[in-house]
Design a binder for these strands. Structure first.
Lengths: 247, 247
DNA sequence: TAACTCAAAAACGTCGACATTATTGCTTCC
DNA sequence: GGAAGCAATAATGTCGACGTTTTTGAGTTA
């Protein structure tokens, strides 16, 4: 057993309490890459709070690596604006604010609108099929929400995201999809922080179901104007629910 | 004199041949930050060619730092998709392709459209004034292009960019402007590589002048549809000139 | 009590060294 | 002559150590 996989196992076992880390990392990755995904997850899920100082000793203990891979991972999160840095004062989790949340969600709505608009122009049969497939999987998993444990919500959320990603993928623009993904991650941080305080009720999800069907109809009809309008509303809905509650 | 500024001076003096590096770095930055801007510049300007292997020994010599700051800087360029990495095989300059160029330019046109559209909605008097000021500076500097030395072209290009940034800034969305900046950098790599091979002729710039005036008129008239159309054409024009030439 | 000083402790950023992995080049064998 | 094996070389990724800077906190003074 080589060092990396050995170390990897240790990580999984020492994942202290709060966050069960995904073991889905290929040992072909280096430490920096492995730490990146875990650290990102820890920030997005709120294990490290907004504005919290990220002390190296703590990070070294948690992820069982030296400072070099840590600083590489943190450097990447810096570009993604999930951490901030001040010379000689180390790294800090990027603070949150109502203003940033509004900006992210609105920008995300615009970007998603671009994706959908182009997807309608460019999407082919395979695109339509993948949407219907993802929609089917999502609908079938609605039962996950009956028992609203964090794990089930996470699983449903993953399927939900896959559904919307299937739609956006039709735009066939790696650059645009890259931007989209980055914004999704930033937004999901706010969503997760909100989830930690407020349990979600089922009604919002049923509204979701209807919106999804309307969206699919507009997509298959290649009705760009309606589809863009629907997807933007679909994204801004959660925002409106979030923004008035205390973070 | 501390180590950083001492080292900094050495950098400026040892800037081998091709690229005169900007000395505009505060000594409050750490090595990683300083290396980042220089390395990015070297990639954008083509000192390091697309697909070229970035060997650590070479980078250490060029920037006079150890591997730690280098890997941090490269990690950031990784997120910005200016380099790629393969485990145990180090970093490589991100390759270029006609497909990527098309994707970047088209996405950029869409993003710039969003910026302009929102700027027209949100822009105030100060916004209008800053546009006119930047336009004035740009027009006054047209003489820079009479002698088309690389330095003059660079200076004109900076003013040109400031003009368009002044317009986009009206959207008042940090997130959107962040995306915009990232795409500008990626696109400028293609433009720079093109400039290395083809000297530009003056006619394209005069066409530019007229487009700028039309754009300003549309902005001040708050004619969103025209303005978005104009800015997108303005961005795609250079793309069309570039795409048919050999890279 | 509040502000200030300053020494001790903690934390940061960088380098050099080392183990591991990839690459090169030479030799051997078909 | 060309493929295959293998040793030598080179390059990568990570850690521990070190100098520097920031933070802490106890003691002093107003």
């Amino acid at each position: 057993m080589d060092r990396i996989s050995g170390r990897r196992t240790e990580w999984n076992m020492t994942a202290h309490a709060n966050t069960p880390h995904t073991p889905n990392t290929h040992s072909s990755d280096n430490y920096a890459t492995q730490v990146l995904s875990q650290l990102k997850q820890d920030i997005l899920t709120g294990y490290f709070s907004p504005g919290e100082k990220l002390r190296m000793v703590r990070l070294k203990e948690r992820y069982q690596v030296g400072v070099s891979p840590l600083r590489e991972a943190l450097s990447q999160l810096l570009v993604e604006q999930l951490v901030i840095v001040e010379n000689q004062r180390g790294f800090t989790v990027h603070p949150i604010s109502a203003e940033e949340m509004a900006d992210i969600y609105h920008t995300r709505a615009q970007i998603e609108g671009l994706c959908v608009g182009q997807a309608i122009e460019r999407g082919d049969d395979a695109w339509e099929a993948s949407i219907l497939a993802a929609a089917h999987r999502l609908k079938k998993s609605a039962e996950l929400l009956d028992e609203n444990s964090p794990e089930n919500i996470q699983r449903w959320e993953a399927l939900h995201q896959e559904f919307h990603t299937a739609i956006a993928a039709g735009c066939a623009s790696p650059t645009l999809l890259h931007v989209r993904r980055s914004l999704y991650e930033k937004a999901s941080r706010y969503r997760n922080l909100w989830l930690k305080r407020n349990m979600l009720n089922r009604t919002v999800f049923h509204a979701n179901q209807q919106q999804h069907q309307d969206l699919i109809d507009a997509l298959l009809a290649r009705d760009s104007e309606s589809a863009v309008q629907l997807i933007q509303e679909h994204l801004l809905g959660p925002y409106r629910a979030l923004k008035d509650t205390q973070l």
